[in-house]
Write a protein that binds this DNA or RNA. Structure first.
Lengths: 300, 300
DNA sequence: GTTCTGTTTCTTATAGAGAAAAACCAAGAA
DNA sequence: TTCTTGGTTTTTCTCTATAAGAAACAGAAC
């Protein structure tokens, strides 16, 4: 059976919306809500019905009014708004990174399913998608092997990343003066400066900024394979950051400064400078990743 | 329920083996057969039992002898030896390339399942794996869209391919004199020459040679992401060749000559020559692919 | 005529089950 | 001791089923 996470998330979102509208106000139409909440009208109607039952809205048909219980109404817990597939991803990444799974470990669909409390179907689906990360390998009819979060993984990942990023950075520099990307770059520069002033308190926010920065650079000359590769980077770093807190503040501060140098170089449009700044930044990012790999490559 | 394609394929293979042994000969042990046929001993035993029932082998335990009916025994038809997943891939690629599906077409799991005569699970699994080809896109809770086998697909594919191949080719040139890869390259050169002499009759054989040649170049400095990307190339070309027969003989002859120039360049270890030869070959391969794309990119 | 709601139909996400294949275990033969 | 076979357990592959969610349809309201 499907989980009703979509409904629950929409319910919570709609609750915020209704609270913002205030008591006695008229609700938007179903199609309007559907667009706003980014779910189908079917789900909107289900939410609306739940609201009616709880007295959050009164009246029906075209006359739906925000009721008095709206503010007091209970939300669904966050945990119930994540889809099964997302849970599997999260749990698997934790298993891999936090429990420090050894290279060569056999991955057992059935066992993972039991451990995660889901059906095997979901595990299989995840593993099939996850295959492209280059961390697991399938042996037909005999399960999967974990290849290990090893040094050579990090090296291979960064070899490609460097090729892609250098290419995109040069493409960025070649952008016409009036490209909107320059303004976006300027805006990101501001954000970097701002984060630097608040670094003590908000250093965790760098992760998201990092991703947006590199995606912007990559968007100068879009290529679906590069985008897709960047998805891998993003996921790896996302979980990696959550798990490796060592020197986080300092690492991030260094990275911000590197981004700023890199940004300068882009604005200068000087190919040599760009290459230098880009290489320098990637080299230090690589170091960080390597330091947290298991180090042990499986015997060939 | 699982298909018994593994058993049937093993049965056929074992039949070949038994025929080669000849009447009255002793069979290898179960573990030996398991290794030879590349299936588990469980399957070997099932085959052996089937052989016993058909009188293909006589005796049991450690004394299994090839019987007289071995030569006359019926094989399972090829069609029954391909696994469901392989069938789905084949049918889907045909749907995409041969039926010339339009960019933006919605892909319906249920409909494909009906069309291919399989359960939806298998379709889902395939689509999830196929996602990395960059030809389809998932919209959560609402199926998949086919992005189209378009010109920009071909361009993006070849942009990456060129980056990877240039890098690998230079790495190849930097290989030590005594690397075994040089001999393999020499052997492939021979094969190219030989194929050229028989080109009229055997031009279809180029496809496999092409794949082996480029994989050899890539193996100079292994990188899992490059390998994985090359899997995509291989599959695309495999099906593309089956479908686009136009000028096949001539195209392949040109490509063989390009490979030979490319090989010369590698042996020369001259970076500039290598780049030139590699670029030239990839450019003509790209042209071929572009000519068979639908050409119509979806409106942005 | 456009936009809305009520209703119906179709599709996706997930669970569950069972046969095929692999992996394991123990006892016997070489 | 090492390899082989017979029997048992575990895991993968694939199908079926069903609630959740999207999409299509039709009539009503603006």
């Amino acid at each position: 059976m499907k989980t009703d996470t979509v409904f629950k998330r929409a319910f919570n979102d709609a609750l915020d919306l209704v609270a913002k509208l205030g008591d006695g106000e008229q609700l938007p139409s179903e199609p309007a809500l559907s667009a706003r909440l980014e779910v189908s009208r079917t789900t909107v109607r289900k939410v609306l019905q739940a609201f009616a039952e709880r007295g959050i809205v009164t009246g029906g048909g075209r006359q739906r009014i925000v009721g008095s219980t709206a503010a007091a109404s209970e939300r669904f817990p966050e945990a119930e708004t994540v889809t099964m597939a997302e849970q599997v991803e999260k749990r698997f990444m934790e298993w891999m990174l936090r429990d420090n799974a050894r290279p060569g470990t056999a991955i057992n669909e059935l066992e993972l399913a039991r451990q995660f409390g889901t059906a095997t179907t979901g595990i299989r689906e995840f593993l099939n998608r996850f295959q492209r990360f280059g961390l697991i390998e399938k042996r037909p009819n005999a399960g999967w092997v974990f290849k290990g979060f090893t040094t050579s993984f990090a090296l291979e990942l960064f070899e490609i990343r460097e090729m892609f990023e250098l290419r995109s950075a040069q493409a960025f520099a070649a952008l016409p003066e009036d490209s909107p990307l320059w303004q976006q770059l300027e805006a990101l520069r501001e954000e970097h400066h701002f984060l630097l002033t608040e670094i003590e308190r908000r250093y965790h926010d760098f992760s998201g900024l990092d991703s947006r920065f590199h995606r912007l650079v990559n968007s100068a000359a879009p290529n679906r394979f590069i985008d897709s590769f960047y998805d891998i980077i993003t996921v790896i770093f996302h979980y990696h950051y959550q798990w490796n807190k060592q020197d986080e503040r300092q690492r991030n501060e260094v990275a911000i400064r590197e981004h700023l140098t890199y940004t300068e170089a882009l604005f200068s449009r000087n190919a040599a400078m760009i290459e230098l700044a880009c290489r320098a930044h990637l080299a230090s990012a690589r170091e960080t990743l390597i330091r947290s790999t298991s180090g042990q490559d499986p015997a060939a």
